[in-house]
Amino acid sequence: MKTDDFIRVLAADRRRHRPLRNTLLMALPVALALSALALWLTLGFRPDLMQSLTLPLSLARFLVTGALGFAGLYVSLNLARPNGRKGAGLGLLLLIACVALGLMAWAYITTPPDARLMATYGKSMFTCLLTIPVLSIVPAIVILTTLRQGATTVPALTGFVAGLAGSGLGAAVYAMYCTEDSPLFYVTWYGLAILAVAATSALVGSRVLRW
């Protein structure tokens, strides 16, 4: 290619791309609204939803899953940049995991031994394991699609963290239905559902985020 031709190509490629963060800020609320609508039309919201928010252990479900979702977004956006620090924010994800495990340990200690099994398995284990991944599909797709506009050098890891973000937010949506307030239940089964989505997203990300 001649120098003049190369200059013309560079000049033609001066389009300003919207930052990935702005794209997510526009698309993700719509995705979460669709997930919430799907939950409301199928399972509905728990009747005492507003009252449950005054109970610390019940409120913790929203705080932990929401924190995981937003922390995952922060880390995945950083990983989407080729010059981003690979470890930036990963400590935050670890901290959230430690908080969740701390809640679980506290619940185990304070729950009578003969009630621990029921508190762990609850009455909606299978509903939880099925519904959280379903509610996470649209948010995870939105996040992965947005990250494709980046240039990650670790596509599998980026996909995994994107899956944590999407499923963390999906779990927060599911919490509007769930009546299981013990951390023995929601740390166990929410956690397994979230990890399943993240593992799937890692596989998808290793393909679609490669460049």
Results as ranks from 00 to 15, higher is better:
residue 169 L to N: 11
residue 161 V to Q: 14
residue 185 F to P: 01
residue 185 F to M: 07
residue 183 P to K: 03
residue 163 G to R: 04
residue 185 F to A: 02
residue 176 M to G: 15
residue 169 L to K: 14
residue 188 T to D: 01
residue 161 V to N: 15
residue 195 L to M: 15
residue 173 V to H: 08
residue 172 A to T: 12
residue 163 G to Y: 04
residue 161 V to W: 14
residue 172 A to W: 13
residue 175 A to D: 06
residue 191 G to M: 03
residue 183 P to I: 07
residue 195 L to I: 14
residue 180 E to M: 09
residue 188 T to E: 00
residue 193 A to M: 10
residue 174 Y to L: 10
residue 177 Y to P: 11
residue 185 F to E: 01
residue 196 A to D: 01
residue 169 L to D: 10
residue 190 Y to D: 05
residue 182 S to V: 05
residue 164 L to Q: 10
residue 162 A to L: 12
residue 181 D to E: 15
residue 180 E to P: 03
residue 179 T to M: 13
residue 181 D to K: 11
residue 167 S to Y: 09
residue 184 L to E: 04
residue 177 Y to K: 15
residue 191 G to Q: 02
residue 163 G to I: 06
residue 182 S to W: 02
residue 190 Y to K: 00
residue 194 I to S: 10
residue 165 A to L: 11
residue 194 I to V: 15
residue 194 I to Y: 04
residue 170 G to M: 08
residue 169 L to T: 05
residue 171 A to S: 14
residue 168 G to I: 12
residue 188 T to A: 12
residue 174 Y to V: 08
residue 169 L to G: 06
residue 190 Y to N: 00
residue 179 T to K: 11
residue 163 G to Q: 02
residue 190 Y to T: 07
residue 161 V to L: 10
residue 183 P to Q: 03
residue 179 T to V: 13
residue 192 L to F: 13
residue 161 V to H: 15
residue 164 L to C: 14
residue 181 D to F: 09
residue 176 M to S: 15
residue 186 Y to R: 00
residue 192 L to M: 14
residue 170 G to E: 05
residue 175 A to C: 05
residue 167 S to N: 09
residue 186 Y to I: 04
residue 180 E to F: 05
residue 166 G to S: 10
residue 186 Y to E: 01
residue 171 A to H: 12
residue 190 Y to E: 01
residue 188 T to P: 06
residue 168 G to H: 15
residue 193 A to V: 07
residue 168 G to S: 10
residue 194 I to T: 04
residue 168 G to R: 14
residue 183 P to M: 02
residue 170 G to L: 10
residue 180 E to Q: 13
residue 173 V to A: 05
residue 167 S to Q: 09
residue 179 T to H: 12
residue 169 L to E: 07
residue 178 C to F: 02
residue 169 L to A: 00
residue 174 Y to A: 11
residue 166 G to D: 02
residue 195 L to E: 11
residue 181 D to G: 14
residue 192 L to G: 05
residue 173 V to E: 07
residue 164 L to W: 15
residue 169 L to C: 11
residue 193 A to D: 00
residue 171 A to I: 03
residue 178 C to H: 06
residue 177 Y to A: 15
residue 178 C to S: 11
residue 182 S to G: 03
residue 177 Y to H: 15
residue 171 A to R: 08
residue 190 Y to H: 10
residue 163 G to T: 05
residue 173 V to G: 02
residue 181 D to C: 07
residue 162 A to V: 00
residue 189 W to A: 09
residue 180 E to H: 01
residue 178 C to M: 01
residue 176 M to P: 09
residue 180 E to N: 01
residue 166 G to I: 06
residue 187 V to R: 02
residue 193 A to K: 03
residue 177 Y to L: 13
residue 169 L to P: 11
residue 184 L to G: 03
residue 194 I to D: 07
residue 178 C to W: 05
residue 165 A to P: 13
residue 163 G to S: 07
residue 195 L to Y: 09
residue 185 F to R: 06
residue 196 A to Y: 03
residue 163 G to E: 02
residue 176 M to W: 10
residue 175 A to F: 03
residue 165 A to W: 14
residue 176 M to D: 07
residue 172 A to S: 15
residue 175 A to Y: 10
residue 196 A to F: 06
residue 196 A to N: 08
residue 171 A to C: 09
residue 170 G to Y: 09
residue 174 Y to D: 07
residue 170 G to Q: 00
residue 178 C to A: 10
residue 194 I to R: 04
residue 171 A to N: 03
residue 182 S to H: 06
residue 166 G to L: 12
residue 189 W to T: 09
residue 188 T to I: 00
residue 181 D to Y: 07
residue 166 G to R: 13
residue 195 L to G: 07
residue 175 A to P: 07
